[in-house]
Amino acid sequence: MLELNILLIFMILGALIALEVKDLLSAVVALGASGLGLCIVFLILKAPDLAITQLVVEILCLIILIRATIKKDLPFSTSGRWVFNTIVSFVFIIIFLYLGYLAIKDLPPFGYPLMRISQFYLDHAKELVRSANLVSSIILNFRAYDTLGEATVLFASVVGVMTVMRKKGRKKLEEKEEDEL
């Protein structure tokens, strides 16, 4: 899987550029490069549904982020406890990497998964659901409760955005009475 490792390194480089570049529009474009690399990685990992969804979601995410960066850029100030903050965050990240390394060592090796639950779906999905796409039959038939919860979360998020971006905030009842007095 050499191409997978090369693409992952490309994505890491894209993420580093997105975080370190000064111009905000360039940062968003570099993030888009990283996301499109993720789309190709999904194709290599044999997940075409995820590749289609990641591609279109990446485009929409880019448009929304560009909407946020349409305001002018700001110069970065390096005052304050710059050295102390950098050292603390790097120490934290090194501890996190070490703990993650210890956790990864106990996983089954890459390419040989444990498929205790999925073996039932692989064996019986064709007779029970009669859908050619196994992912679709899992999210809408075997595990439809999961999708119902996802619809709830999406609805809550839409209502949250509409509440945050409302034109005028409603005043509290007491303040309104005070204004009338």
């Binding site: 549904d49 289609i52 969804t53 929409l60 050619a132 796409n133 999210i139």
Partner: peptide
């Protein structure tokens, strides 16, 4: 065609929005 080819409601919905 979400049940006979890759895709489905999530990807199709985002394309309609786009």
């Amino acid at each position: 065609h979400g049940h006979i080819s890759p895709g489905g409601g999530f990807a199709g919905g985002v394309i309609v929005a786009i």
